[in-house]
């Protein structure tokens, strides 16, 4: 075969490898897999819509209640829906041996994890944000609150994915990780929830929201810089113990 005949004498390579093609390949593979496995894509979204629509039915369809509680309802539903999708983040890769190959790439695992979580957010977080204006209207929120809600979700849902990835990586070796994963991750979601709903409340009362958004942004930066390290370490442990 000609590819083999061209082969020069093999010696250990010293030069470092480019990083971006590897990250792009990870992103492409994850997005392609998600697009071909539609239920992984739609289930969290359908869950999100159903949880939100339970509140007008179960509590009260009054405008006073809904516009008061709407932001909180949407945020909690987004949080639960993200939680629901977390178990898939690494599990398929783990079972198929793809994760082993990722750990053995010469590129920094930090960037590979960052890319994987970003891909996860693209297929789970972004659809939630796109669906939010519609559900906001259903919960009788005013336009200002809806815009503000979308903005907070845009800053907040990546944080949920990044924090959740740590939990997903830690519980990878367990057979039924669902409940434990929730118990690990939900306490860490509380600050995001508080700042997220706080922003919409403030906007509803006509108060300035820049400080709230800045805090959410700070959480995002913190998650972006720290969480992939923790996730990478947890992945190494889980693969090592498998």
């Amino acid at each position: 075969m000609s590819a083999m005949q061209k082969l020069p004498r093999l010696t250990p390579k010293q030069e470092s490898v480019p990083v971006w093609p590897a990250c792009w390949a990870v992103l492409r593979r994850d997005l392609l897999s998600s697009l071909r496995q539609r239920q992984d894509l739609f289930n969290p979204l359908v869950f999100f819509v159903m949880v939100v629509s339970l509140f007008p039915l179960g509590v009260s369809p009054e405008k006073a209640f809904l516009s008061e509680a709407g932001a909180g309802i949407l945020w909690v539903a987004a949080l639960l829906s993200t939680l629901l999708s977390l178990d898939h983040l690494f599990r398929h890769d783990f079972e198929e041996g793809v994760l082993e190959q990722l750990l053995l790439q010469p590129q920094p695992l930090y960037l590979i994890v960052l890319t994987k979580v970003f891909a996860h957010w693209l297929v789970t977080g972004v659809p939630l944000i796109l669906m939010t204006p519609l559900l906001g209207l259903m919960l009788q929120l005013d336009g200002n609150s809806i815009a503000c809600l979308c903005l907070t979700l845009l800053l907040g849902t990546p944080v949920l994915s990044f924090i959740g990835a740590i939990g997903a990586a830690l519980t990878l070796g367990l057979r039924s990780a669902g409940i434990l994963l929730s118990l690990l991750v939900i306490p860490l979601y509380i600050p995001v929830l508080i700042f997220g709903t706080g922003t919409v409340m403030a906007a509803g009362q006509g108060l300035p929201i820049t400080s709230h958004l800045a805090l959410l942004g700070a959480l995002l930066v913190l998650a972006l810089t720290c969480a992939p390290f923790a996730t990478a370490a947890a992945l190494r442990i889980s693969v090592s113990n498998s």
Binding site: V17, A22, V26, R28, R29, S33, E96, G97, Q105
Partner: peptide, 24 residues
């Protein structure tokens, strides 16, 4: 490894491309 690192939903060409991306 004995788990080959192949994504079942992707084609052989896509899988191979992803596995080879480590040294582009």
């Amino acid at each position: 490894g004995h788990r080959p690192g192949i994504k079942p939903l992707l084609t052989p060409l896509e899988n191979l491309g992803a596995l080879l991306a480590r040294n582009p």
